[in-house]
Design a protein around this nucleic acid. Sequence first.
RNA 1: GCGGGUGUAGCUCAGUUGGUUAGAGCGCGGGUUUGUGGUACCUGAGGUCGCCGGUUCGAAGCCGGUCACUCGCCCCA
Length: 412
Amino acid sequence: MEKLRTVRGVHDLLPEELYIHNKVINTALETSDNFNYSQIEIPIFEFAEVFKKPLGESSDIVTKENYIFKDRSNDELMLRPEGTSGVVRAFLNAGLVHDIPQRFSYYGPMFRYERPQKGRLRQFKQFGVECLGLSSTMADVEVICLGNEFLNKLNVLEKINLKINTLGDFESRNNFRNALVNYFEDYRSSLSKESLNRLSINPLRILDSKDEEDQKVIKNAPNIMEYLNVDSRIRFQNICKGLDHLNIEYTIDKNLVRGLDYYCHTAFEFTTNELGSQGTVLAGGRYDGLSKILGGLDVPGVGWAAGIERLALLVDTEIVNKTDVVLIGQAENFNYLLLPIMKKLVQQGIKTEIIYSGNLSKKFKRANKIKASYAIILGEEEVDKKLLKFKDLTSGREEFIDLKQIIKKIKN
RNA sequence: GCGGGUGUAGCUCAGUUGGUUAGAGCGCGGGUUUGUGGUACCUGAGGUCGCCGGUUCGAAGCCGGUCACUCGCCCCA
């Protein structure tokens, strides 16, 4: 009989790791709240169509990475592989099309059936923001600024680079795609197997191939910048100007692309090289086509999503989990007096633990281990005096006082 | 999905060309101290050597499979 375990790529989160995750999430919530993005929560599973339509039937996420299942009413459901589709769906359902702009943030688990690696799990958490209803490039810059500020607050910015690119509008992108296909057709024999495959399905993706032979061909491939129409070009210039104004450093990476059809114009990625091939830590772009694909009106949108696990691996934190006070009974028969004291302390917001077992020496060792600041000792002498012994564990000083005074001292 | 690496106590790891009761440090429990900790000493618990099968008189060590983790690819956060 094999021991019960978690399924592949799905992990338990023990307190220390969860502490860091929560720190990342809280920093994100705080930052996005300051930017006036309101938190929403959407279901973890949806009708499969919600993801299939926007992502495209041929995308990897839908074809080989999905968790699709039928429920008892025979509805085809899917565990969400990303957040944007659901957020936009919720926005449409709530009729907020008539109340734009809307700024949302969300976080929670996503599911992708991929080969697990460090920083790549089958159940993982994303935090994301979406700005809906603004087509101005100001919104793109705002959203990037928010992401940048978030990473800054997390204190990881020095490990991270921002790359941006534009995909142009649908017209520019189509022209570019055709040019690409024409170009790569001439080099079929030098392309890798994967890239040949991409040539028919998603030629843009060839551009970010890591294959060395591919790279040689890509070097002289058509440049998206030359295929942008005037509007798209101006938009991109505005983005760059906006970032310059904010003193946000970035590099233009003309090979940065997006696989999904609903993306247009701005694409950006915050990446690190400290996580191997899972370097993308926060990424997003503009997705003006999405709401229409989901059956709504044409509503522009721009946003990003960040990988909590990946960021947690970058964050340098001391895990602070201090206990304010421990309660120690001289012997076991005094223990019953401790819970009522704990109750009063807890009501004052004081973090308390009762140490039940071991001799006094062991109990104090435990107090050290859980980083307690104070100890309250209760035994014969205390009962006689109707006072408690209060010990400051940093100075080692002890005194006999009552609970009210103790509370005052702990709270300063 | 494809290719490489790894898998021995809760954790980090030893384990000599296959040889008898598989070790250490840290951590954990008890004690030295029947009223006092951050040291020190004593002591205890804890492993079917990832799992299954094969080779062998004999396997933690060799072979095959499998599972998990990990690195690269694919893809992505």
